[in-house]
Every structure is written in structure tokens, then in C-alpha cells.
Design a protein around this nucleic acid. Structure first.
Lengths: 251, 251
DNA sequence: AAGATACATGCAGAATCGTGCAAGAACAGG
DNA sequence: CCTGTTCTTGCACGATTCTGCATGTATCTT
């Protein structure tokens, strides 16, 4: 029994039965109560459940399965996503790029936040379908399968007809000299088109992207408003970026 | 044991059992744990699984069980879908509507069929992302959440720029007098726009839709090429439709 | 108030991880 | 056919993480 698996099990149990009794679970799974308690403590710290004497209860009946899904994103991406989601103002509009980090942002949007989300990713559109308040606009075009977003002339043209307060872009490389880069020329062009339609552009860059570069440049540093990353604030690359005048939001 | 083969094995195991324990796999395959760990690290970097202490879990449990649920599409829908998928010619183009039956069609498209699929459903676009040969075009617009498709002026306009050999439409009601109907006016308009862009239009109608009607009319009988259904060939309603000149393909 | 139960914390042993390294296989070029 | 290069694989080692137990404390029950 993997530790992570155990946590999933606990969340599942919580969602299904609405409560967890530490003693019973320990007996069922054949592990010590200490482990169960430790897990519950961790989950409670992440806001995924409410710790009570003897076990745990759902954090808030409505948000459990939403948060449970969010728990599947790697920690770094989740942190970045949660900071990014906080940039979206009530009633505001956001252009959301494709990719796993952007998907995490979509999932991190509070259920009580009324906003407009514009995206070229069918995956993100699907994920936001069950958001109660978000207005959704999908940019059509030819679907690039390897990244599951629409690109190309039609998509860029579609982007010309919209505008937004904020644009959240994913990239595959963040490098002081190379700038913001990605692995496909079409995608890079699409990202530029999206960025151009928003007042502010922030880059979503989980730690592993920092200091790396890919073949195609998306944007130079001057064109973006800031960078959201979970990399150490004193990482050498991050320091370099700051001296370039890039606003770095730590996740 | 080839490296690629090993990776396949890991993914298969993950899909079947829902988890991977590095130690066990290493023992089973007679290779070092290091190799397994390396593979898992790579797979995780590609987003194909989630690395956890001791092994790995599916990338997104939520997606997995979503797919599992979809896989168990009711028998009727699957039959209808398979007949519909057979109408798509190699090298041809098809406009695919949204809805669960259309999704089943997408899944039923042979992996070795090269064709162009045009859709206004992000769900279907996502489902076809892993189809090796299908060219995919997504019609953008405002996303109607309750049915997860794009509708409205922008979507209709986007539809004007495409055309196809075949259009496969889902509806909620198939009635001899009321015609083909659905529950939303915007959706009905969108379906009309799609149908107008294809040489032939077939209706996907699993048995339970036959003989029922919804508020908004999509198309009159004259405008469609045929109806695909799993209802009994001698069903009274089906007989009536035939006398109206509707071509009925039995699934 | 007293006993029982659950809890947090510290600790030690065990399991797992990442990294560097070297041996071997696969491969390209001469 | 030989040689240098690259890639893969398994091993060693230090670092990290996990787990169960012991201990003292907090909370519940009667």
C-alpha cells in the first residue's frame, strides 16, 4: 500500500461515506493508527478534510470532490495554479492557455467566482463545464494533437475578436537570455496572439521549467507582466530574472 | 526487454491495476528498481502518470474513471455509434455533433481511418486527441455548459467557413409529426447550421429517443439523409418514419 | 473526578530516492 | 572491421521520507 494511495483511499472514503474513523480504517487497511492520523493531519492542513476527535469529516460538503481532483496535480503546479487563480478578479476575464499547469488553474478557480474564461484548449473547456459561474468562450481552429490546443490561422483569427484583463500562459522554457520558449512554432505564435489580446500577461512556470529553453521563442521579457513560479526565491536564475525587471510571484 | 516495451508494460499495469509499486515490478521483470524508477520519472515528466513515494499512480484518477464510465456506454448507443462510424469514408470529412452518442461515434472511429473531424464539442475534441490519423477542427464560440458544446453567433459563424461530406447529429426527440427536436433553441440553431454545411446528414437516435419530442425543432424530415437507430425495425414509429421517406439504418 | 481513548511529538529502523559512476550495448563514421 | 560516441543499465552512497512504537498530554465518557 503506497502512502499516496492511502491518502486517495481516505479522500474517496470521505467522499463516499462522509466520515472517517481512524481506528476502523487502520484496522481495515492493516496499518497503524498513527499513519492514518498522520495522513488526516496532512489532508486537513491542505484543507481537504476537517479533523475531528476520532477521525475526520469533509472539509465542506460541496468542495470535497473538487479538491480531491485538485490533489492529483503535482504539488508545484498546484501552488502555481492557486496563485494564478487568485489573480482573476470577480467579474473579470481571463485568457487561459493549454497545458497541465493551466488545467490546474482552471480547477483552482473558486466555485463562487463569476468570471469569463477564454481558452483554446478543449481540455480546459471540458474541465470548466461544471464550474457554476464561469462564462466560457472557446477559440476554434485546427487542433494540434500533441498539445491538445487549437492553433493556426483560424485560431489566431478567432483570438483577434476577443480581449481580456488577464492572460495566463504556459511555456516549456524560462531562460534569462532565451526568454520564454516552447517546443512548437505554431504554438508559440498562438501564445503571442493570446497575450496580445490581454491587458496583463503572466507566465505559469513550475520549478522544472526555470533555466531551460526550447526551440521557439514565445515572447521577450518586456512583453509580460510577471512570472508565477514555485522555484526558490533565491534560485540564481530567478535572481537573474528579477534584475531583468521581471515581476516574480512566488507560489 | 526493450526500454520502450518496459514503458508499455508500466502504462498497461497502471491502467489495469491503478497503481505501480516500483519494487514489485522490478522483481517481476527481473530488472533493477533504478530502471523502473527512471521510467516512472520519465513517464511522469510526460504527464502519463503521477510519481509517488514507492511507485506511481495514474496521472489523473478523475480522468481515468471518467473514461471508464464513458466506456460502458449503453449497448444501444454503442451499436448506433458503430454504424455511424462506418459511414465515414477514408479521406473523407465528417461534422460530429456533441452529446454522448456522438462521443461514442468518436470512440468508434477506426484507428487506421484517416479522416477530418469537425466538431463543436470540446469533449469530442479531447476524446479524439489520441486518434492517430484523424485531422481535427474545433468550432469555437460560447460554450453552453449544460450540453458542453459551443453555440451562439460566433459558433454559427465559424461553421460557415467549413464544409464536409457528412454530418452526424444527435437529437433528444424523434417524432413522426414533430420531427427532430432538442431541448434548447440555441442548440437547435447550431445543429441546423452544422447540417447545412454537409452534403449528407444522418441522425443518431438510440432507441429511447424514438417517438418522443422536445420543445425546439431542429430540422424537418426532408432535410436529412437518414436516421440511425437501434430501435426495432418494425417499431410502429419507425414504420411511420419509413412511410415518410426517411432512410432508416438499423443498428 | 477518574478511567479510557485519542492525540502530538520524538525517535529509530527501514524503505525509497536522487546522483554520480562505471561497465556494457548500440550505433555512426572512417 | 575498428574506433570513438552516445545511451542504457545496474550499483554504491548519502539524503530524504515513511512507519511504528513509546511517552506524555489532551479530550471524551461515565
Amino acid at each position: 500500500m503506497l502512502a499516496a494511495e492511502r491518502r486517495e483511499h481516505l479522500l474517496g472514503l470521505l467522499a463516499r461515506t462522509g466520515k472517517i474513523v481512524a481506528k476502523d480504517v487502520a484496522a481495515d487497511l492493516g496499518i497503524s493508527e498513527d499513519s492514518v492520523r498522520r495522513d488526516l493531519r496532512d489532508l486537513a492542513a491542505e484543507g481537504l478534510c476537517q479533523r475531528v476527535y476520532g477521525g475526520a469529516l469533509p472539509a465542506s460538503p460541496a468542495v470535497v470532490d473538487y479538491d480531491a481532483r485538485q490533489a492529483v496535480a503535482p504539488d508545484g503546479k498546484r501552488k502555481v495554479a492557486s496563485v494564478a487563480a487568485a489573480l482573476v478578479q470577480p467579474g473579470g476575464s481571463v485568457i487561459l492557455d493549454g497545458g497541465t499547469t493551466a488545467l490546474a488553474v482552471a480547477r483552482a478557480l473558486p466555485k463562487d467566482l463569476a468570471c469569463t474564461v477564454i481558452t483554446h484548449s478543449p481540455t480546459i473547456a471540458t474541465a470548466l463545464t461544471d464550474h457554476p459561474l464561469a462564462e466560457l468562450f472557446l477559440l476554434g481552429g485546427r487542433v494540434f494533437k500533441h498539445s491538445a490546443v487549437t492553433c493556426g490561422a483560424a485560431a489566431v483569427e478567432a483570438a483577434q475578436n476577443i480581449s481580456a484583463d488577464l492572460c495566463l500562459l504556459g511555456v516549456t522554457g524560462v531562460h534569462p537570455e532565451a526568454g520564454l520558449t516552447t517546443g512548437d512554432a505554431e504554438e508559440a505564435a498562438m501564445k503571442r496572439a493570446l497575450s496580445a489580446r490581454a491587458a496583463d500577461t503572466y507566465i505559469l512556470a513550475s520549478g522544472e521549467k526555470i533555466g531551460t529553453a526550447s526551440p521557439y521563442r514565445v515572447l521577450p521579457w518586456e512583453k509580460i507582466t510577471g512570472l508565477i513560479t514555485d522555484a526558490e526565491a533565491h534560485d540564481t536564475v530567478v535572481e537573474q530574472l528579477k534584475t531583468l525587471g521581471v515581476e516574480v510571484l512566488a507560489a
